[in-house]
Amino acid sequence: MNSWYFSHLTLIQGMLISVPLALSVQIALRSGVFSFASIGFYGVGAYGTGILTMRGWPVLPAMLLMIVVSGLVAYLMSAPLIRLRGLYLGMVTFAFDLILTVVATNGGELTGGALGLLGVPLGIGTGGLLAAALVAILAVSQLERRAVGRALVGIKASEELVMSVGVDLKSRKRTVFAISAALGALSGSLYVLTFSTVQPTSAGFTLIITTLTMAVIGGTSSWIGAVIGTVIITWLPTLAATIGEYQHLVYGVVLVLVVMYAPEGVLGALRWLWRRLAPRLRPARPPALVPSGGPPPDRGAAARAEPVPADRVKG
């Protein structure tokens, strides 16, 4: 166990660092906010924490400062962004991330140019990473459980419906945007404190795709999906040595297949299985409670089936 732990330490660390980032994309997608902005804030967190700690700041204040600043900046930025339709928001935030990589490349001595930051003091152990990942999971899962989170599910199903019952959609979406950015900054900070280096391309195109794959493969309906996706994407390449070179090809194929056949991800597939198996595993109910003719109605499935509002049926 011990030798396995040490030989896989980098993967374990990478996985724990990815958890908040995957959550940041999942929480946004779950609320119908198709945003990649958290990847940009991952870069902000990594560079910010790196620069501050290299100038003698203690680790925790530097991290917290970057997380809070990212959340605030994202909240301010979100005002014009959240009125955009999904696809356009996606592309704008895509552009935002890539502009940041150009800025980092041109940052001169502060950001180290194309080479990035080198020699950031190591400031966190695996225990710290685990704690941070758990805090992120706890925060997101609590958010999902409360009324805020339930309203956010509604946003995805039908924005009009949610607004009609008096939910302030705009402020909810802006909050999600800010939390997503804070999670991204947290992940970036963890990265730079663990691996002591960051390059402009670290928060670029590849990271966007990898993180999106994690969230989508796992399933965006709950934090569990993001965690499942992170575990799968981290360990998939180690399962077969041959995957190594073709890693991104496998990701690509898997992503396409998931979108085509299981848009709810692994989590959706598991839930589907559970719905099919659960009635058989449960002890039979007294016949009096069953409506005559036919098996007991599957209330769970009916409740979960997404309603299609009449005005959305036609494209």
Binding site: G86, L249, V308
Partner: peptide
């Protein structure tokens, strides 16, 4: 849902792009 279809198309495109590049 048209919006949902657009987003899924976008994600599928990102995935498909990985194949020729790899």
């Amino acid at each position: 849902d048209k919006r949902q279809a657009e987003l899924l198309t976008l994600i599928a495109g990102v995935g498909a792009a990985g194949i020729p590049v790899t």
